[in-house]
């Protein structure tokens, strides 16, 4: 198949970017979206052009590195990571728009690569449990109700790709923050820091300049891991709880 790409090209953070059009011929429908970009980049390199910069790592949908906005939708038309999106999802002759995540706390570094350091700082503000590591405890030493374990695990599958922010009309990172809070606050190990965690992570979320959540749900609709919408209500409950119980 032959396609036309309109790609956001921006040499660095300081320079203005623009959309540049490239024709890509003889694309196999079995290629992933990133492999198609690899093919284009090989050609650009041979032609002495600067290859298109994009983040990627595992290419099996588990690391959270890749992610671009395809036709206005984070990760494109399927609810999966960009690396797991294949060219068969597009029609022959399609014109495909490719842009970086857009949000004030995610500045563009180059082309399609953005700085997601804001997520790291939200994690540093409480996305952990403060216990010394040692030998692994017995698996049955701390019983966890099945429903809590299931929901905590669903939340823990967040790979921090940032698609939720890129999709949110408010540029909010509430789904990401809520996934991390829900994951730890549902489990016994998370209880000692329950309220300082949620308050600290939300404070850092706001500090980074992310917007507030208006419960529109675009985030969960594009999330490649299907992080449940209810994690945000879970975060809200704990945040409001910390107003009363968070005085230490």
């Amino acid at each position: 198949m032959n396609i036309t790409l309109r790609v956001w090209r921006q040499p660095n953070a300081e320079t203005e970017g623009r959309m540049v059009t490239y024709g890509v011929e003889n694309v196999s429908e079995h290629m992933s979206f990133l492999e198609m970009l690899d093919v284009l980049n090989e050609r650009l390199t041979l032609e002495g052009d600067d290859p298109i910069a994009f983040d990627h790592d595992c290419r099996e949908g588990i690391c959270g590195q890749c992610g671009v906005v395809i036709d206005g939708q984070p990760h494109g038309p399927l609810q999966t990571t960009t690396c797991q999106l294949h060219m068969r999802s597009f029609a022959d002759g399609a014109v495909i728009d490719v842009e970086p995540w857009r949000a004030e706390p995610f500045p563009v570094i180059k082309d399609l690569v953005v700085d997601r350091g804001a997520f790291d700082r939200i994690i540093q503000a409480g996305g952990y449990i403060s216990v010394p590591t040692g030998s692994a405890p017995d698996a049955h030493a701390t019983p966890v109700p099945k429903t809590d374990a299931d929901m905590a695990f669903d939340a823990a599958t967040c790979i921090a790709c940032g698609a939720c922010v890129a999709a949110c009309p408010n540029g909010s990172a509430m789904l990401f923050t809520a996934a991390k809070v829900t994951h730890l606050n549902l489990l016994p190990q998370g209880q000692p820091e329950r309220y300082s965690r949620v308050a600290g992570m939300v404070a850092q979320h706001d500090e980074e300049g992310f917007g507030g959540c208006t419960n529109i749900g675009e985030c969960t609709a594009v999330c490649p891991k299907g992080i449940p919408f209810e994690t945000i209500s879970f975060l809200n409950r704990d945040l409001l709880g910390s107003l009363i119980k968070g005085n230490r």
Binding site: R6, W8, M19, V69, D71, G72, Q73, D97, E99, R102, A103, E104, P105, A167, C168, P169, N170, G171, S172, G209, F210, G211, G212, T214, I216, G217, E218, A221, V222
Partner: peptide, 28 residues
Amino acid sequence: ALWRRARVARGGTKRYVSPKARRGVQRS
């Protein structure tokens, strides 16, 4: 207060150049 914060956070009124998903994915 939240409106002003959101306007900045989403990266201004012109966010994505692509006109293909202006109505969002599932929003009402």
